[in-house]
């Protein structure tokens, strides 16, 4: 018996590592990639249920559009067009579309009595939120594109530059919004964020035109491109966090 045992060759280092890896791979759950997980959510739940409040969103958005347009038009009349740079409007407008959709979703969802049941399902509120936030940002980009196009029909604007500016602003705001959403528990904090965003931009534009103009217009395209890319990366990282890490922390 002892002699037989001696005959069993011990694994070499390479085989040993291979065996350890095989055990770990089989023993642990496979890591799911961000995009494939989102694709699974889409496939499993479908747009019909992911955006079951589509009419509500559309209605809110249209109301906001009407109020926002009325506000901008009246502001332009009041402070005269010469003092307001159209790029300011583009920069401010862009996150508004996102905020309306995202904030409405979070507020609505937490106030609904269905929240508790939905939160204890396999794909819960936070995972749906990650998917929807991504869609909202895409829709916001599209809406901003249309908004800029509408402005071009009346004013002299560089579409590509304005779109880049709007996307940069959208993703910067979206990162801030998600940060505030998951690090504070009050609704007021999100309202404050919006007011600060609006107020600081309007005031900077109104009282320090040259600085604001320089800031917005003198920065070259590629810098905005880099800022936009960095903001998108951070935004996706936040959504990934929403999808994989924050979901099990007693989110009530």
């Amino acid at each position: 018996m002892r002699d037989n045992l001696k005959d069993i060759p011990y694994l070499d280092e390479k085989s040993l590592q291979k065996e350890i890896s095989a055990i770990i791979t089989n023993g642990l759950d496979p890591k799911v990639a961000f995009w494939s997980y989102l694709a699974t959510i889409y496939k499993q739940i479908g747009l019909k249920f992911l955006f079951k409040d589509f009419i509500e969103i559309l209605f809110t958005f249209l109301i906001t559009l009407v109020i926002g347009s009325a506000f901008i038009l009246s502001t332009i009349d009041y402070i005269h067009v010469r003092n307001v740079n159209l790029y300011t409007i583009v920069f401010i407008w862009s996150p508004m579309t996102y905020m309306v959709m995202a904030y409405l979703f979070f507020v609505n969802q937490k106030q609904k009595t269905t929240y508790e049941v939905e939160m204890t399902c396999k794909y819960n509120f936070l995972q749906l939120a990650a998917f929807r936030m991504l869609m909202f940002s895409a829709i916001s980009m599209l809406m901003n594109g249309l908004f800029i196009y509408a402005l071009i029909l009346q004013y002299e604007l560089n579409f590509f530059y304005a779109f880049l500016l709007s996307s940069t602003s959208l993703f910067l705001f979206a990162v801030l919004f998600l940060y505030v959403q998951f690090h504070t528990r009050t609704h007021v904090s999100k309202i404050i964020l919006l007011i600060v965003w609006l107020g600081s931009n309007l005031l900077a534009s109104y009282y320090s035109m040259s600085f604001y103009m320089n800031f917005l217009k003198q920065i070259p395209f590629y810098v905005y491109g880099i800022i936009a890319i960095v903001a998108i990366v951070f935004y996706l990282k936040s959504l990934k966090g929403l999808l994989f890490t924050q979901k099990m922390k007693g989110w009530m």
Binding site: K52, T113, T120, C121
Partner: peptide, 14 residues
């Protein structure tokens, strides 16, 4: 959550 079934005290519905 996959093995969990839950009926809350206030069951919400659409």
């Amino acid at each position: 959550r996959n093995v969990l079934g839950y009926l809350p005290q206030e069951f919400g519905y659409y």
